[in-house]
Computed example of a mutant assay.
Amino acid sequence: MKNILIGMILLFVTLSTQAQDKKNKNAKYEIEVGGNCDLCKKRIEKAAFSVKGVKSAEYHLDDNILHLIINEEKCSVLDIKKAIAKVGHDTDEVKATIEDYENLHSCCHYERK
């Protein structure tokens, strides 16, 4: 009887842990991205949408925040930050290379941190 009770407890703990590990299909994130103008906005949003699993990407020039809705089963925020850095824009975790930044149009040269 004691073994059955212990087995049931272990089963319950295992199932509840697995349920918590599920990825969210509509996770919302906000990330800061360096940018200046409408060209930046279009480039940043296009880079975000190039990552499979991005459902929504809207960049706000007034506060330099990219609002995202993503399927965490298909991508991560880090994947998106890497894609944005490849097109020349810095995020908090991933910085664009000097070459990628220099390739931006002159009006797009934002102040780097």
Rank of each mutant, 00 (worst) to 15 (best):
Q18N: 15
K95C: 04
E93G: 04
L11N: 02
L5S: 08
I84N: 01
H60Y: 14
Y110C: 03
V54H: 00
S76F: 07
T97D: 08
M1S: 11
L15I: 07
Y101P: 00
L68N: 03
N3Y: 13
D79Q: 00
Y110I: 06
G53I: 06
K23H: 12
D100G: 00
L10I: 02
I31G: 03
V33H: 06
S56V: 12
E73L: 10
K41I: 13
V94L: 07
A83I: 00
L78P: 08
K41Q: 12
C108H: 03
G7V: 01
V77T: 06
N24W: 10
L61T: 05
E111G: 09
L66I: 06
A57H: 07
E102L: 09
N26S: 11
K113Q: 09
I6Q: 02
D62C: 08
I4R: 09
A48E: 09
E99H: 08
K2W: 10
F49I: 10
S106M: 12
N26Y: 13
V33K: 02
N26Q: 12
I69F: 01
L10E: 03
C40Q: 05
K42N: 14
A19S: 14
S76G: 09
H109G: 03
D100M: 07
A19H: 15
L10N: 01
N3F: 10
T14E: 04
V54D: 00
D90E: 01
K52N: 13
T14L: 11
I44A: 05
V13I: 13
D92G: 08
L78D: 14
I70M: 05
N103E: 09
Y110W: 05
K82W: 04
E30M: 15
E73F: 10
I69E: 09
I70E: 02
A83V: 00
N64A: 10
A57V: 06
Y29K: 03
G53D: 07
I69G: 00
K2E: 12
E32V: 14
L39E: 13
I9F: 06
K28S: 13
K41P: 06
V51H: 01
D90L: 01
V54Q: 00
C40I: 11
G53Q: 03
I70S: 03
N3K: 13
C75E: 05
T14G: 07
E93S: 12
C75Q: 04
L10M: 04
G7T: 02
V51A: 03
E72F: 10
I69A: 02
R112P: 00
D79K: 01
D21I: 11
E45H: 07
R112N: 02
K82R: 09
D92F: 06
L104Y: 05
E99P: 05
E58S: 11
S76P: 01
G7M: 01
K25V: 15
